[in-house]
Design a protein around this nucleic acid. Structure first.
Lengths: 215, 215
DNA sequence: ATTACTTTGTGAACAATTTCACAAGCCCTC
DNA sequence: GAGGGCTTGTGAAATTGTTCACAAAGTAAT
């Protein structure tokens, strides 16, 4: 299969959300134009995005809401359950655990780790905080699919090296530190300060660049 | 000035971080190649990014670390203080408030708002939670530069409308709901579930698309 | 069954972004 | 102060991503 752009995958995720909204509203059929309007893009963009994976619509009619939603779930890999661990039981980790959007999409938090002895063993969102030292042993038993990294910047690379060694195939990094992984490990970085700086730039150069950031 | 791509601005923010790292390590001069390696890009990319704003280096030598850092701070608008409010005193809002990266870059949290009467009036990270109803009046006195939105999805658009009416020029939206603002208001959306789905896609289609997400 | 109307799927045009490649400039040594 | 070795800054080329525009295929009504 052809390499699909990151931006395309992002939009597909959004389309799925919109389909669920439309479906909840009782709509059974939807046009590329409606999806486009909901997402602030164009109907051509929607159709092109979908066309990378097949043709799912009926000409003259549009797309079946539940059918297209199913196709998107399959494309995105959301038909299965994903085993997620959170490394770093601080505020960010806790906020993520409470965020309902994850379990709703099949992302199950199966373990939490921390280094702080004061936290280890304490109850945490229905789980018990475990010692990072146990991570490798736990992973050997049952490797998680995705690790969410919410440790302080200084600790990030060290933890990542352990995760990689333990065979974790994907990492979502919230630590404000650039980290290195071998190419076979999927990595995404989320850096909230970066987003704020983008807004600061937009405000500073507002007259030039009116409005607009990344919608 | 020419319209600068979002991706370019993001990279500039990263370069600034790297410069600070290099500077802390005692380095006074840095080449585009070093910055590129640190950030996983190419030296040509670094030079092109900088070239949109001027020429800051010395041929044969590279860039002065403190000088370029200063230039980047100016470009990004980080030489001034930004007044930030947080709307939604839940877990995500709290996590953001605790995250040191903000104040370090001149983003000052000047107020927190919530709708929940149980929270209003309680102390929160050195501030006191205020009633969202007071937001407009407060803003009239001293308009914040950026509002960070960490309310539930259902409440998002309503709050945004109030923020816009109050004249807030930029919004960073963490609510998992697409929101509408007039074009003169800068908006960025952060959706953590979307990032996880991106990883799920990468893992599902791993053989095709080896490794790689958005680094 | 024909007509009028919609909406998809897609090659081709266009636009944006990244990479290449190299002249020009600066440092350092001799 | 001439020569060798780096590194910048930048047009041009290549690549990637988006928009256009239209034939093809479906619906609905008569």
């Amino acid at each position: 299969m052809k390499r699909i752009a990151d931006s395309t995958v992002r939009r597909l995720s959004l389309y799925l959300r919109f389909l669920e909204e439309f479906g909840n509203g009782g709509q059974v059929t939807v046009s590329s134009g409606e999806l486009a309007q909901r997402g602030g893009t164009t109907s051509a963009q929607v159709r092109k995005d979908l066309s990378f994976f097949g043709s799912f619509g009926k000409r003259g009619l549009g797309y079946s809401v539940p059918e297209l939603a199913g196709q998107l779930r399959e494309i995105l890999g959301l038909e299965r359950e994903w085993r997620v661990i959170i490394v770093g039981a601080g505020k960010v980790g806790t906020a993520l655990a409470q965020y309902g959007g994850f379990s709703q999409r099949g992302f199950h938090i199966v373990a939490v780790y921390d280094k702080d002895p004061a936290k280890i063993g304490t109850p945490w969102e229905g789980l018990t905080v475990r010692d990072v030292a146990e991570m490798s042993a736990d992973s050997a038993r049952e490797t998680p699919d995705i690790a969410v990294l919410t440790v302080p910047a200084g600790a990030a690379q060290g933890v990542v090296d352990r995760l990689v060694a333990a065979g974790v195939p994907a990492i979502l990094n919230f630590a404000p530190a650039p980290i290195n992984v071998p190419p076979e490990v999927a990595l995404k970085n989320v850096n909230m300060a970066l987003e704020l700086e983008g807004l600061a730039y937009a405000l500073t150069n507002r007259d030039a660049n009116d409005g607009a950031g990344h919608r």
